[in-house]
C-alpha cells in the first residue's frame, strides 16, 4: 500500500505580528512550521504504516527551505520525501498548486490513499485537497476525522461536519483531507532525526520531472491573485462603563446587543 501525504510549510501564525503602519504581515524572525492539519494527515498516514505496513511518501512544494518539514516527516517515520521546487512553480494560487501536486502524484503511481490537511493556517482556503482530487479525477472526502482501511481496497471514512458525522465507504485510490483537531500527531524520535539526516535524502523535483501541462503552473497558471493584504482593524473604540455592578453591566451589554440588532 502506498500513501501519499501532502505537506505545506507555513509561518507559525501564533507568532506572527502585523505591521501597524503598513498593515502587512511581519514575516521576519517568524519560525516556519509544518502546517498543523497536514501534520495530522501525516499521523493518519503513519498509522496506516503501523497497521498495514504502508509506504508513506511525503510531497511538498516550496523553496528549498521546505526540506525542513520533509526531514521532520522522516523523523516521524515517513519513508520517502519529495519537494517540488522550481521557479516555474512560484506565485502559484491554489489551483496552480493543485496542478503541480497532481502532476507529481501521477508520477507516483500506483498509490492507494492521498492524504492532505483540511487547510493551511496561512491561506485558510481548504481548496488544494479538493482541487487536486478533481484534477486527478479521484473520489474525495474532506473533513476526515478517522479512517479504517479494508482489505477489499475500500476505506471506511468518518467525516465530521459542524454538528454531525458521516461514515462513508469509498473506493481507493481516494483523496482525503484531515481535520487537525481530531488527530494527535506523534513526536519525532531521536533515532528518526538521525536517520532523517544521515540515511535519507529529500528528492528535489523540478517542473519538467512531473506529468503536467506547464501552462497550468505558477503565477501564469493562477486565475486568482492577491491584490492586497491587510490586518483587521478595530472599527470603534467601544464604550466604557465605570462603577457598575455585575447585574447592571449584564443589562447594559444586553441592551447594546439588542440596539445593534445582534440579538
Amino acid at each position: 500500500m502506498r500513501v501519499i501525504c501532502c505537506l505545506k510549510q507555513v509561518p507559525d501564525t501564533t507568532e506572527i505580528k502585523i505591521d501597524p503602519v503598513k498593515g502587512t504581515l511581519i514575516r521576519e524572525g517568524v519560525p516556519s512550521i509544518m502546517n498543523p492539519d497536514d501534520k495530522a494527515g501525516l499521523e493518519v498516514a503513519l498509522q496506516l504504516k503501523d497497521k498495514y505496513g504502508a509506504e508513506v511518501v511525503v510531497l511538498s512544494m516550496g523553496p528549498m527551505q521546505a526540506t525542513e518539514i520533509i526531514r521532520e516527516a522522516f523523523a516521524m517515520g515517513a519513508d520517502r520525501g519529495i519537494l517540488l521546487s522550481d521557479f516555474k512553480f512560484a506565485g502559484a494560487d491554489t489551483l496552480a498548486t493543485s496542478s503541480a501536486l497532481a502532476g507529481a502524484i501521477r508520477k507516483l503511481e500506483p498509490y492507494d490513499i492521498i492524504i492532505m490537511g483540511r487547510q493551511a493556517i496561512d491561506g485558510d482556503t481548504a481548496q488544494v485537497g479538493p482541487e487536486t482530487a478533481e484534477l486527478l479525477d479521484l473520489p474525495q472526502v474532506s473533513y476526515v476525522k478517522s479512517l479504517e482501511y479494508k482489505e477489499d481496497g475500500t476505506c471506511l471514512v468518518t467525516r465530521k461536519v459542524e454538528d454531525r458525522s458521516y461514515v462513508l465507504r469509498v473506493k481507493t485510490p481516494v483523496v482525503l483531507t484531515v481535520l487537525g483537531e481530531e488527530v494527535e500527531p506523534r513526536y519525532m524520535s531521536v533515532a528518526g532525526i538521525l536517520k532523517a539526516f544521515r540515511e535519507m535524502e529529500v528528492e528535489i523535483w523540478s517542473a519538467d520531472k512531473i506529468d503536467v501541462d506547464v501552462t497550468t503552473l505558477g503565477l501564469k497558471g493562477s486565475p486568482t491573485q492577491v491584490k492586497q493584504s491587510f490586518g483587521k482593524q478595530l472599527k470603534a473604540a467601544g464604550h466604557t462603563y465605570d462603577n457598575v455592578s455585575a447585574a447592571e453591566g449584564a443589562k447594559l451589554i444586553l441592551e447594546a446587543l439588542i440596539d445593534k440588532n445582534l440579538l
Binding site: 513526536y187 519525532m188 531521536v190 532525526i193 538521525l194 539526516f197
Partner: peptide, 16 residues
C-alpha cells in the same frame, strides 16, 4: 548548530 541538532532541539522543546 547543524540542521540535525536544530530539529533535535525542536523535538525536545515540543516534548518539554
Amino acid at each position: 548548530k547543524t540542521a540535525e541538532f536544530k530539529l533535535y532541539e525542536k523535538l525536545l522543546d515540543e516534548f518539554v
